[in-house]
Design a protein around this nucleic acid. Structure first.
Lengths: 237, 237
DNA sequence: CTACCTTTGTTTAAATTTTAAACTAACCAT
DNA sequence: ATGGTTAGTTTAAAATTTAAACAAAGGTAG
């Protein structure tokens, strides 16, 4: 038992993980809750923060415990602390956000969660707590992020074509399709792509395969104003 | 006394408030700590969250208690939870962020704080806890925010000239001076300004006075992609 | 009252960038 | 060989941006 002079809230983390498999829609990783409250409901992976671990560490630990998904980068999304958001009492939750390649991150339930599954974004079930609100914010963040940071590094296979990269952008931005010629020239001029070969065995002119140039990608990701990239994508969006 | 089955962290809020008075630099509101730890050191206003108040409410309450500053809009910045960030034990702090007009928000110390003062941004003293890190993040957020949201509503007097608005942008972005003619046309075409009269008694051609068009301003502030505004400012930055 | 100073505000032509049409290339299947 | 399909290039017209030159509206000094 632990005793304090003043009352204290519980603190949890929740993790919003987007997965991509090359298709026209993103997926999201959810768990089915094995305990009360909301037993049997779907929810974001997450749980209580240990006193001797940092917040991000807690997020990664809970995610792996509940879904088996690991080896990913997370970024902080928002902290939810409405007085009544959890029926167990005052619980403040720091939400995290991540993008992964679906092939490398299968979901397998364990411990607290009875199931862990990838859901298509427009087929999400009803969610426990205020998790719908968290996901709404995450969607906004993702749409905003795309505009000032490069995406793809975590979502695509190591080598990919410009067509695949464009498909990803169209998926994330939920746009029909933007001009292929211009996407090409603009993305290439950012310098984040490096040619690594050509497609094999396709029934048409083989596309050039690219990989991300780590250094240029990193630089774009860090410059928070996103000038080059924004200008590169500021069309048809 | 309050007893729990598992240990719990303390939860605080910290508030980064920027003030503007028409000059070439922004100011920031700090307090001198009246109690341990870091007694006598300067720090961001802030304090413990009550269990029956929302996070934002706690931020506004602590700010008013410590500095007398009230009636402002805050937005969440980031949550700091490193294990060793506070010598008193595990303390997780949700940082908030705000912009105010200095004329309307004088600082007057009270309660926990012995002093409350506005500091020029490049003359900040050494700070308690990890507050320097918080301010660094706030500065980044401010610079990023300017690019996709209109600013000025909270920072300028009700009526102002285009010159004053431009001065503000130059101050916030920390740029020398950008093209006056283009600033004019770009800002005007966003439709966020409304003419309300002319300057009086100035030793030169009097400038037109503007106020923000609430509706148009609000709309720009909400559309998270910031298209119009970004294009309006994407020059010389 | 006049000349002049300062800052505001407008017009516009040249430079740059964007857009998308037309075209060319590469591969497989039949 | 021919056709189907997707990849990739060239380029001229359209749109936008940039900044030079200029005009306007006050106050002030003599």
């Amino acid at each position: 038992m632990h005793t304090y002079k003043y009352p204290r809230p519980s603190v949890t983390v929740d993790i919003v993980v987007y997965g991509y498999d090359g298709g026209k829609q993103l997926k999201m990783l959810l768990i089915e809750r094995g305990g009360e409250p909301f037993k049997g409901h779907w929810a974001l992976p997450g749980g209580f923060v240990d006193l001797n671990e940092d917040l991000e560490t807690a997020a990664l630990r809970e995610l792996e415990e509940e879904t088996g998904v690991k080896d990913l980068f997370v970024e902080q999304l928002f902290t939810y602390g409405a007085v009544q958001r959890d029926p167990r009492g005052r619980v403040i939750s720091i939400a995290y956000f991540s993008l992964v390649n679906l092939q490398d991150h299968p979901a397998k339930a364990s411990s607290d969660a009875t199931k862990a599954e990838w859901f298509l974004l427009d087929e999400l079930p009803d969610l426990a707590f205020d998790h719908s609100e968290i996901i709404k914010k995450a969607n906004e963040r993702l749409a905003a992020k795309v505009r000032y940071q490069p995406i793809g590094f975590e979502l695509l296979p190591a080598e990919f074509t410009l067509g695949e990269l464009q498909q990803l952008y169209e998926t994330v931005l939920n746009v029909e399709s933007f001009n292929k010629r211009n996407f090409r020239t603009r993305i290439l001029r950012t310098g984040i792509l490096e040619e690594v070969g050509r497609q094999q065995n396709v029934a048409h002119r083989p596309a050039v395969l690219y990989k991300f140039n780590q250094e240029a990608y990193q630089q774009l990701a860090e410059q928070r104003d996103g000038g080059v990239l924004r200008r590169a994508l500021d069309f048809e969006i």
